Amino acid sequence: MSSTKMPAAGTPAARPRLVQLLGRAQRAVQRWIETRPEAWEGASAAQAGLLFVLKSRKGRPAAIGEIAQELGVAPAAVTNLSKRMQAAGLVERVADASDARLTRLRMTEQGAQAGMRAGDVLVELNGRLAQGFTAEEIQTVARWLAQAAALEQDLPGD
């Protein structure tokens, strides 16, 4: 395991390579998640993200576009993912009460159980990531990550 070297005493502090560190962190988190197959019994990690969105809606069905926006992906990706999830019994499609052209997704009981298992593992991961940091430091990290995620709004053509 490699460590980040600190600048020698008396030298100006080197600026951290944030993009490199973010990429490495994302890959490490992804590998950590992938080594917990028990968390994804019945649902993949990508499907768990969709289940978390539906759980946050407290039983109210969500439109594909709403889910896509919350996950930061294209609606077509949510459509494809939801088809596999419907076949697996994790979500069901329901007609919109006010617009018959719109289909919404609702989590099934099986989806709720799969989401709970995945959520337990992510609570563990969040705890490990926050270990050794104060609440204020974690808030700074969260604010920085939100700022990084907001870069997507500046993409051309969006």
Rank of each mutant, 00 (worst) to 15 (best):
R84D: 03
E124K: 05
E124F: 07
A112K: 15
A63N: 03
A114C: 11
G72K: 14
M85F: 06
V121Y: 07
A97I: 13
P75Y: 14
L71P: 01
R60Y: 09
V78H: 05
L105P: 03
R128S: 00
S82Y: 03
R60G: 00
P75E: 09
L105A: 04
P75H: 10
E109F: 11
A74F: 14
A130Y: 15
R101G: 00
G127M: 09
M85A: 04
V73F: 04
Q69S: 07
T103E: 10
L90R: 06
A95Y: 13
L81T: 00
G119F: 15
V123L: 11
R104S: 02
R128N: 00
P61W: 12
Q86V: 04
M107T: 04
Q86Y: 07
V94A: 03
G59P: 06
N80Q: 03
L71R: 09
A95R: 15
M116D: 06
N80G: 00
V94P: 03
G89K: 05
G89W: 09
A76Y: 07
G127K: 09
L122N: 01
D99L: 09
M85G: 01
L102H: 01
R104I: 05
P75F: 13
L129S: 08
D96P: 04
V73H: 03
T79A: 05
A62E: 13
A77Y: 13
A77Q: 08
E66I: 14
M116R: 15
R101M: 06
A74Q: 11
G111P: 11
G65E: 13
R106W: 11
L122I: 03
R84N: 03
D96I: 11
V94R: 09
A118N: 07
L122A: 00
P61M: 12
L125I: 10
E70V: 14
A118E: 08
G115P: 06
A62W: 14
V73W: 07
G119R: 15
L122D: 00
Q69M: 12
E70L: 15
R84F: 04
E92L: 09
A88D: 03
A95E: 11
A100C: 04
A63I: 13
Q110K: 14
G119L: 15
T103F: 15
Q110P: 01
I67E: 04
V123N: 02
T79C: 03
E109H: 06
V94I: 12
E66Q: 15
R106Y: 08
Q110E: 04
V123C: 01
D120R: 14
M85E: 01
G59K: 14
P61N: 10
D96W: 15
L90T: 02
I67N: 03
G59Y: 14
R101S: 01
R84T: 02
R128K: 04
I67F: 12
L125S: 01
G72I: 13
M107W: 06
A114P: 05
G111R: 10
E109W: 12
A77H: 08
